[in-house]
Nucleic acid binder design. Structure first.
Length: 439
RNA sequence: GGACAGGUGGCCGAGUGGUUGAAGGCGCUAGUCUCGAAAACUAGUAUAGGUGUAAGCCUAUCGAGGGUUCGAAUCCCUCCCUGUCCGCCA
């Protein structure tokens, strides 16, 4: 959401920002709607003031008359009664115009930061660094084949109960997924200063509005029969911990992390990444969220990217980090870095983390503010979120990068403490049911 | 899920439908006093919005949203949240 005063004062700044995202100018319409709204609001307030004045008089007079009445009181009451229709009409008008303006504003994306490169899509993202060398492999298999050989990745069984885009993991691979998640959480809490959180997975409209998924992206979400929504990322739950709050500056930054399942309807992704675990309706993700002061968020973004990269470094997975261009950034973001891990099975770098600074965009929607010691005024916090990292995709990356010629998968050193002595996942022979896997 | 009881400023807590943005207390800030501090005393102490060069003026806000009324913290309805008891349950 945006500061209307700022839009009034700097319409060009906003229009050029939206233009960089490929949108036409918006401020002319915003300002026209705002103008109408304020005109109506002023008229309403003036009439309210008159009514309040008269009603106060009535109170005073009735007090003197001990609750009785006289001509003067009757005249005043008649006067106020005359305002009634006008007042109701103005009130309705004011509501209508405010709602219209709000609805319009709530569908507009954040303004890109000046350091974000221009561009229309993925191809225009700018690589900032590349860490680690892909190991040369002869005919590397992709995670689906590796998983099948290990007897631990089963899409058919998942499909029976849940349909497409679900997976069922067994035995060693199930444990590996858990190991990855534990390792990441331990690293963020133990080395990166994040506080581990266990959060609701079902949230209300307000929470999703706050982080920007609603009202525009309802189609991407799952909704329960009770009107609650399943979180598409724990960014929603972690960021909304400060919904409506006024924090003290010295409590900041808040650095929160959580491991949660994420639920995405993947509407509009038909035909995309249909093979394997890349794009599922449900997946685990370790998320990082930072709540900072307004002048600290860009430094925090670099720090957060570093935390996510550190996970991949410890796992010794080759990756590259890119700055998303204006055309590829998400709705709420002011600036975003994606981390792409190398997948031998695809011979390509694929997104495994996305770290964004949202500036005050979400904070305005959530009314999340902070106060500096000794200052009266409140300011909006800045919010950042980043995957640290996506567990499912990390599992894929480990399987593909640590596969051996014999079909086994070596456990990365960093994960060994979490694997109960298992150092390698071995392929199993053909099984009749396919439902038994090695440990 | 059922039955009660509640939700008032940073906190506690009063509030008969009428000059109540809201008593009183605590806390906080400043001043007086003091060598200094404490105590005491005095004063100040919400947020958002509209309007104005400004001082200011106006509007809204007592969990949220509707309604009744000339006028609502107060009466009515719906919802949310908290507490207690019962039921159910991992």
């Amino acid at each position: 959401m945006f500061d209307l005063k700022l839009i009034r004062d700097n319409p060009d700044f906003f229009d050029s920002g939206w233009k960089r995202r490929g949108l036409p100018p918006q401020t002319a319409q915003i300002l026209a709607m705002d103008e109408t709204r304020r005109t109506v609001m002023t008229a309403l307030q003036e009439l309210l003031a008159k009514r309040n004045e008269a009603s106060k008089q009535i109170g005073v007079l009735k007090g003197k008359l001990k609750g009785g009445t006289n001509d003067e009181v009757e005249a005043l009451m008649a006067e106020v009664a005359g305002y009634k229709d006008k007042l109701a009409a103005l009130e309705e008008d004011e509501k209508k115009h405010s709602a219209a303006l709000n609805d319009f504003l709530s569908t507009l994306p954040n303004i890109p930061h000046e350091t974000v490169p221009d561009g229309g899509g993925e191809k225009d993202n700018v690589e900032v660094r590349r860490i680690g060398q892909p190991k040369g492999m002869n005919n590397p298999k992709d995670h689906v084949d590796i998983g099948a050989a290990l007897g631990g990745m089963d899409f058919e069984t998942a499909a029976k109960m849940s349909g497409a885009r679900f997976v069922l993991l067994r035995s060693g691979i199930a444990r590996l997924e858990r190991a990855i998640a534990q390792f990441m959480l331990d690293t963020h809490t133990g080395e990166h200063g994040y506080t581990e959180m266990s959060v609701p997975l079902l949230v209300r409209d307000e929470a999703l509005y706050g982080t920007g998924q609603l009202p525009k992206f309802a189609d991407d979400l799952f909704k329960t029969g009770n009107g609650l929504w399943m979180i598409p990322t724990s960014e929603v739950s972690l960021t909304n911990t400060v919904l409506g709050d006024i924090l003290e500056a010295d409590e900041l930054p808040l650095r929160l992390t959580a491991l949660t399942p994420c639920f995405r309807s993947e509407a509009g992704a038909a035909g995309k990444d249909t093979r394997g675990m890349i794009r599922q309706h449900q997946f685990y993700k370790v998320e990082m969220v930072s709540i900072t002061e307004e002048d600290k968020s860009m430094d925090e973004l670099d720090r957060m990217v570093g935390c996510a990269e550190n996970i991949l470094k410890k796992l010794d997975l080759p990756f590259r980090t890119v700055t998303l261009c204006t055309g590829d950034m998400g709705f709420s973001a002011q600036k975003t870095f994606d981390i792409e891990v190398f997948l031998p099975g695809q011979n390509a770098y694929r997104e495994i983390s996305s770290c964004s600074n949202c500036g005050d965009f979400q904070a305005r929607r959530m009314m999340a503010r902070y106060k500096k010691a000794g200052e009266k005024a409140t300011r909006f916090v800045h919010t950042l979120n980043g995957s640290g990292v996506a567990v499912g995709r990390c599992l894929i990356a480990v399987l593909e990068n640590y596969q051996q010629a014999d079909g086994s998968v070596v456990i990365p050193d960093a994960l060994k403490p979490y694997m109960g002595g298992v150092e390698k996942l071995e392929p199993v022979g053909e099984r009749k049911s396919g439902k038994v896997a090695n440990a």
